[in-house]
Computed example of a mutant assay.
Amino acid sequence: MKPLKYLKDLKEVKVERDREFFSATHEEIKNAWTTDVYFLRTQDILSHLGIQDKVVTAEIFAREKGVFAGLPEVMSLLKDKKVEVWSLEEGDTFEVKETVMRIKGPYSEFGVYETAILGILASSSGWATAARELKEVAKDKPVLCFGARHVHPAVAPVMERAALVGGADDASCILGAKLMRKDPKGTVPHAAFLIAGDTLEVARAYRDITAQDEKITILVDTFKDEVEEALRVAEFLGDRLYGVRLDTPSERGGVTPSLVYELRQRLNQKGFTNVKIIVSGGLTPERVAELSESGADAFGVGSYISDAQPIDMTMDIKEVEGKPIAKRGRIPGIIENKKLKKIK
């Protein structure tokens, strides 16, 4: 596969009619197949003028505040390029218009990657920021990312990795967790209970196939009243039970603070003070705060993270051959940011 640089290279882009998946492969991304075509035309024009290798300094800034993520993928794009890179570190926070990355080198070395670089940083930072918002209200209580089902599988691990960068404690997507050297976390979906026909049947099987030291969490909203089911499970599993999970659907009013509070009190009354209450289902920072106050111990969050809007990133040329320059409305020359670290 040939890297794209000029418009004439487009003849190399051959897409099979029976392609199984529409997401870009790693090679296609590295070879600029996901760039906007006008960057190839730019290279044609600069080459025609004989100035394609002018050394420029480009800066990337964000239009919203957030948490920075996506750096390793950007560096994978630039690792063989003759450029210098300064950047925030993953997990760093940034403010509106703050410079998050600076790239210096011949424009021909990195210009065609502007689309991919901005897309990587925009999406990853958006997901990381959403996770940080949740973790800030959850405080020392775990936040688990369950968002893989809400996005295309090609980007699910990118999303869940970004959530971990932002502060989520664990992720259910196998590849997303493994990318951060973590074990994926998750218990059992409603499907198992519906097929088995009874919550205790699943609890029994779960106990029998699980190592003695492994934590067991059981869903308690499939068939019966959540409090009744939780007490049945707690009495049946005893010390083997780590937690019960509430995922009451919106058709039944969802998981409410009063339900969490009642369940906590009823568990305590029966002596099950160590049983944790894990909640999920349409959680937002506001709901995490109120459910935590009511007694919830951990939070499984999907759509708030997966649906997070990308944080709009802009790349500006700020120097050409060492001379400050900028488009109208922007300040010429590099904008100092002491948080930037030399990466390459």
Rank of each mutant, 00 (worst) to 15 (best):
L78F: 05
F22H: 09
G243F: 01
E98S: 03
W86S: 06
A116M: 14
P257A: 05
I120V: 14
A58M: 01
K224Y: 13
D183F: 13
E262S: 02
Y107A: 15
L88H: 04
I29G: 02
K215N: 10
T93E: 04
N268T: 13
S303E: 11
G281T: 12
A289D: 15
K54E: 13
P106N: 13
G333A: 06
K135F: 04
S294Q: 02
M1K: 11
L164V: 03
H48P: 02
D18K: 11
F61G: 09
V188A: 03
F236E: 11
A296W: 10
M313T: 12
M159C: 07
I216H: 08
S47D: 13
K79I: 03
R207L: 09
E229D: 09
A69G: 02
E133K: 13
G111Q: 07
P72N: 06
I305D: 11
N268F: 09
D312H: 15
T129P: 05
T222S: 10
L283V: 05
V96P: 01
L78H: 02
L263A: 03
R181P: 01
V155Q: 06
I195F: 05
T93Y: 04
A192W: 07
P72Y: 13
C145H: 14
L10A: 08
G167N: 07
R19M: 11
G147A: 15
E321I: 03
F272T: 00
A131W: 10
K344E: 07
V320P: 04
Y242E: 15
E262H: 01
G70C: 04
V37S: 07
E319H: 05
G50A: 05
E229S: 08
I331S: 10
G333I: 06
A296Q: 05
G282N: 05
